[in-house]
Design a protein around this nucleic acid. Structure first.
Length: 805
RNA sequence: GCGGGUAUGGUGGAAUUGGCAGACACGUCGGUCUUAGAAGCCGAUGCCGAGAGGCGUGAAGGUUCAAGUCCUUUUACCCGCACCA
C-alpha cells in the first residue's frame, strides 16, 4: 500500500540534500524548464497550477536522471490588484498579505513534491528584484521606447485603472469584466509597435504550437497597403488615409474620418454643422467599446458640411463624413471609402444614399447591379472604370498605382499593425514605481542607475483617487523630490508599472537571482542562454508571452542577453474542469483543492491522476473516481514488493515488455503524452501481476521510469528492495530494441475489408511468404464459395486484405 | 462576420498518421477469499442478435483493396480576434 506518510519522509531527504539545486557553470549539458510563476492569491494553489507545473516537473526529473544540469525554478509574480484590493478592504498592508500568501503557496508546492530549485525563488515585489525591472525601464527610456503621451486609453471605471489593449480584449476589463471606456489621458507608453516585425520574424526560430503562433500573428496583425494623401478641396491641407486596396482608388465616392479626428477641431469655423458633429462625437465617446462594436450594427454618421475632399488621381470632389466605424486608433483614423468593394462602406453608402462606382470586375464581364452587396469576393478581378489601371489584375493594379503615387509624391507603400503601443501605467500603489521625475526645467528626467531601486513609500491609504489618480499622488513627501540633473525641485511619477512588468524578464533573473550588479551575470546568461521548454496557459499568448518576447528582444538588441528569443519551445496545458464539466469557479462551488487530495490520497496520487486525466493539452473534467483509480495503481506498484525475489529468473516475456515500456515511456515524456505513458506502465504492472515471482531486474527500470510521476512511491520502494543510493540520482534506463521485436508475429487477414481471421508468421517474412500463408488458411475457403480471388494486398507486418468477387 | 479547435462505449480517454476502432482507467456484472462486509486477487463488459452474422468514431455524401484518420457539404459546442480600412 502507498501510505501517504512516506511523502514527508522523502521530501525531507530531498530538501536536506538540496538535490534539485542547479549550479551555474557546470560541464554538464544544461536544460532550462520554465513554468509560468504563480500569482500568490489568497485562494492558494489550484489544481490548475498543479497540472501546469507537472508537465515540466516530469521532464525535469527525467532530464536529471539523464545527466543534465537542470534549472527548474519557481517564483512569485506578486504585484497586482487583488492583493491591493484585499489591503483596501482589510487595512492589512500588501507586503504582509503577499508574504503570507507566498508562504502558503510554498508549503503547498512542497507538499506535492515539486523538484524546484528553491534557492532561486524570486518575488517580483522584492526591491532587490524590482530594482532591475526599473533598470530595464530606464534602458527602454534611454532608447526612446518608453514615452509619455496624451492619447485615448482604455480605462476601467471599476478598477479605476488604465489598461493596455492586451488587458481589455473584447472591450471588457481583464480583471473584473467591467466595460471599458475610452479616456484621454497622459500616460507612459512602451513602443512595442517598433518591435512588431521582430516579434513576427522571431516566431520562425522557435518551436511554438501552431495555434499559439497563429494567435500572436493575428494579434500583431500586420497588413500591407499604402498611405495615400488626399487634399481638402481648395485648401493646402492633406488628409492621409491607409488602405490595403490602393487599386480601388478610382472607386472612392466619399471619405470618412473617426469622431476624434483632429481635422474637425482644426476647421471647426468652416464646418457649418459643427454643433451636430460635436454632438455625434460626444455620443460616440459615451459608447463603450463593446457598444460601438456589437450593438451598433447599423452604421451611423454625419456629413461634414463645408469641407470637400479631392481625389489625388481623378481630381473629383467627394463628401467627407464623420462616423464611428472608423477608429482613431488604427491606421490614420481616416479612410477612403469604396462602397462597391467593401462591405462596411457599402452598408454606409446604402443607408445614406451615396454613389457607388464599380472598379473591379470578373474577367468575363460582370453584372453591374450593386443591389446584392459589395463585390468583395471577386477573385482574379480585372480593373474597370479606372483610367490608367483598366485591364490590369488587382495585384498589378496595386503595384502600378503605388508607383504612380510615389512618382507624384501623393503616397507610399505602408505596413500597418493591429497591435498598439503598450499603455504602461497603473494608477495603483502595489506596483513598481516608475523611476522618472518631472522637472520644471529639464522635463522628464530618469533617475541615476545607482539610485535604484526606487522603493515604494509606506502608506496607510491605498484607495486610488476618483479621477484615476494613483494613491502615491497623495504622499507629498514622496512626490516632491529633486531633479537628478539640475538639483532643482521635481516631482516623482505617481503611476506605477503594470503587473506584466515583473513577469517580462523573470526567466533571466532565475539564472542568477542574487546578483546585485546586473540582472544576471554575463557568465550565467551565456551558460543558460534561454529557456528550453516553457509551459503555460493559452490565456497568456497575447499578453505575457508577447510582452516578455518584446523585452527580451530589446535586451538582445542592446547587448544584454545572448539570444534573440527567450523561449525555445512553448507548450500549453489544458484546463482542469470541475466534476460537473464546467470551468472551476468559487461561485459554481466546483473547485477542487489540491491540498485535500494530497492529505487524503498522498502527493503521488495527485500527481499521477493529474497526468492520467487526459491529453495534456486538452481540457478534462475532474473525477473523484479517477483519483481513486490512480491511488489503486500506486498501491499495486507498492505491492509488487511481495512478488519480488532475489533469484535470477529469466523471462522472455518480461524481457520484451520491460524494454518496450522503457522505450514507450521515454518517448511519451518527451512528447508530453503523460496519459499514455502511465497507461503503458499500468499495462506493464498488470503483466507483472501475472508472474509468480519476479526478478528485481524487471522491477528496477519500472521504478525509474515511474519516478518522475510518482517520486515518493518509487523512492520508497527503491529503498525497500535494497537498490543502491537514491532513485532520483540513478541513471535513466536504456532499452534494447532487439528484445522488443518478436520472432513470430500475428497478422490479421481481411476479406473485402473485414477482418476474418489471423495468421502467425515469422517476423522477417517477405510479402510473398505472408500472402502464401494467408491464402493457404482453412478459414478462407468459406468465403470463396462461388467467388474468386481478384486481388491480394499485403502490407508487411501489418495486414493482409483479400479482395474477392 | 473572420480565424482556430473539438465531437469516439454507461464515463474519462487510446489508436505508430490511411492498415485489427475502443489501449489504459472508471463504472457495472460475475467469480474467489470471508461468519459477513470492505479491501485484495481473477474474469467479463461497444450496440443489435440465441447463433451465424450484422451495425458501429456528431450528420450526409465521396475517394480507396482499406477511412476515426483524406476530400466535399453540414450540425453542435469551445477558444481567439472583431467595423483591421
Amino acid at each position: 500500500m502507498y501510505d501517504k506518510s512516506i511523502d514527508k519522509k522523502w521530501q525531507k531527504v530531498w530538501e536536506e540534500k538540496n538535490c534539485f539545486h542547479a549550479v551555474n557553470n557546470s560541464d554538464k549539458e544544461k536544460f532550462y524548464a520554465l513554468i509560468e510563476f504563480p500569482y500568490p492569491s489568497g485562494a492558494g494553489l489550484h489544481v490548475g497550477h498543479a497540472r501546469a507545473f507537472m508537465g515540466m516537473e516530469v521532464l525535469c526529473r527525467k532530464k536529471r536522471m539523464e545527466g543534465k544540469n537542470v534549472l527548474f525554478p519557481i517564483g512569485f509574480d506578486a504585484f497586482g490588484l487583488p492583493t491591493e484590493n484585499y489591503a483596501m478592504k482589510t487595512g492589512i498592508h500588501p507586503r504582509v498579505v503577499t508574504d503570507r500568501n507566498i508562504a502558503t503557496f510554498t508549503e503547498q508546492l512542497k507538499s506535492i513534491g515539486f523538484s524546484f530549485d528553491w534557492d532561486r525563488a524570486i518575488d517580483t515585489t522584492d526591491p532587490n528584484y524590482y530594482k532591475w525591472t526599473q533598470w530595464i525601464f530606464l534602458k527602454l527610456f534611454e532608447h526612446g521606447l518608453a514615452y509619455k503621451d496624451k492619447t485615448y486609453v482604455n480605462y476601467c471605471p471599476k478598477c479605476r485603472v488604465i489598461l493596455a489593449n492586451e488587458e481589455s480584449q473584447g472591450g471588457v476589463c481583464d480583471r473584473c469584466d467591467s466595460e471599458i471606456v475610452q479616456k484621454e489621458k497622459e500616460v507612459w507608453m512602451l513602443k512595442i509597435t517598433d518591435y512588431a516585425d521582430k516579434l513576427l520574424e522571431g516566431l520562425d526560430e522557435v518551436n511554438f504550437p501552431p495555434r499559439v503562433r497563429l494567435e500572436q500573428e493575428n494579434w500583431i496583425g500586420r497588413s500591407y497597403g499604402a498611405e495615400i494623401d488626399f487634399k481638402l478641396a481648395g485648401k493646402d491641407e492633406k488628409l492621409t488615409v491607409f488602405t490595403t486596396r490602393p487599386d480601388t482608388l478610382y472607386g472612392v465616392t466619399y471619405m470618412a474620418i473617426a469622431p476624434e479626428h483632429p481635422l474637425l477641431e482644426k476647421y471647426k469655423d468652416e464646418i457649418k454643422n459643427y454643433d451636430e458633429i460635436l454632438k455625434y462625437k460626444e455620443a460616440a465617446s459615451k459608447k463603450s467599446e463593446f457598444e460601438r462594436v456589437e450593438l451598433s450594427k447599423e452604421k451611423t454618421g454625419v456629413m461634414v458640411d463645408g469641407l470637400e475632399i479631392e481625389n489625388p488621381v481623378t481630381k473629383t470632389k467627394v463628401p467627407l463624413w464623420v462616423t464611428d466605424y472608423v477608429m482613431m486608433g488604427y491606421g490614420t483614423g481616416a479612410i477612403m471609402a469604396v462602397p462597391a468593394h467593401d462591405t462596411r462602406d457599402y452598408e454606409f453608402a446604402k443607408k445614406f444614399g451615396i454613389d457607388m462606382i464599380q472598379v473591379v470586375a470578373n474577367a468575363n464581364g460582370d453584372k453591374v447591379s450593386l443591389d446584392e452587396g459589395a463585390y468583395t469576393d471577386i477573385e482574379d478581378g480585372v480593373l474597370v472604370n479606372s483610367d490608367i489601371l483598366n485591364g490590369l489584375s488587382v495585384k498589378e493594379a496595386k503595384e502600378k498605382i503605388i508607383n504612380y503615387l510615389v512618382e507624384n509624391n501623393l503616397g507610399h507603400k505602408k505596413k500597418n499593425y493591429h497591435m498598439k503601443d503598450w499603455a504602461f501605467a497603473r494608477q495603483r500603489y502595489w506596483g513598481e514605481p516608475v523611476p522618472i521625475v518631472k522637472c520644471e526645467k529639464c522635463g522628464l528626467v530618469p533617475l541615476n542607475e545607482e539610485d535604484l531601486p526606487l522603493t515604494l513609500p509606506e502608506v496607510e491609504d491605498f484607495v486610488p483617487g476618483e479621477d484615476g489618480e494613483s494613491p502615491l499622488a497623495k504622499i507629498d513627501s514622496w512626490v516632491n523630490t529633486t531633479c537628478p540633473k539640475c538639483k532643482g525641485p521635481a516631482k516623482r511619477e505617481t503611476d506605477t508599472m503594470p503587473q506584466w512588468a515583473g513577469s517580462s524578464w523573470y526567466f533571466l533573473r532565475y539564472m542568477d537571482p542574487k546578483n546585485n550588479d546586473a540582472i544576471a551575470s554575463k557568465e550565467a546568461l551565456n551558460y543558460w542562454k534561454n529557456v528550453d521548454c516553457y509551459n503555460g496557459g493559452m490565456e497568456h499568448v497575447t499578453r505575457h508571452l508577447i510582452y516578455s518576447r518584446f523585452w527580451h528582444r530589446f535586451l538582445y538588441d542592446i547587448g544584454v542577453v545572448p539570444t534573440k528569443e527567450p523561449y525555445q519551445r512553448r507548450t500549453t496545458q489544458g484546463l482542469i474542469l470541475g466534476p460537473d464539466g464546467n470551468k472551476m469557479s468559487k461561485s459554481k462551488g466546483n473547485v477542487v483543492n489540491p491540498d485535500d487530495i494530497v492529505k487524503e490520497y498522498g502527493a503521488d496520487t495527485l500527481r499521477t491522476y493529474i497526468l492520467f486525466i487526459g491529453d495534456y493539452g486538452m481540457a478534462a473534467p475532474w473525477s473523484e473516481n479517477g483519483v481513486k483509480g490512480a491511488k489503486k495503481f500506486l498501491d499495486r506498484v507498492m505491492r509488487i514488493e511481495n512478488l519480488v525475489t532475489d533469484e535470477e529468473i529469466e523471462s522472455k516475456e518480461l524481457e520484451k515488455e520491460i524494454n518496450a515500456v522503457i522505450k514507450k515511456v521515454s518517448q511519451d515524456y518527451e512528447d508530453m503524452k503523460y496519459n499514455t505513458a502511465i497507461a503503458a506502465m499500468m499495462s506493464y504492472v498488470n503483466v507483472l501481476y501475472k508472474q509468480e515471482k519476479i526478478s528485481k531486474k524487471y522491477v528496477k527500470p519500472l521504478l525509474q521510469i515511474l519516478n518522475p510521476v510518482a517520486p515518493h512511491v518509487t523512492e520508497e520502494l527503491w529503498e525497500r528492495l535494497g537498490f543502491e543510493g537514491y532513485i532520483f540520482e540513478s541513471k535513466w534506463p536504456e532499452y534494447d530494441e532487439s528484445k522488443i521485436v518478436l520472432d513470430e508475429i500475428e497478422i490479421p487477414v481481411q476479406v473485402n475489408g473485414t477482418v476474418r481471421y489471423k495468421i502467425n508468421v515469422p517476423a522477417d517474412s517477405s510479402e510473398e511468404e505472408i500472402e502464401k500463408v494467408a491464402l493457404a488458411a482453412e478459414q478462407l475457403k468459406n468465403y470463396l464459395v462461388e467467388k474468386e480471388i481478384k486481388k491480394v494486398i499485403v502490407i508487411k507486418s501489418k495486414i493482409v486484405n483479400v479482395v474477392i468477387g
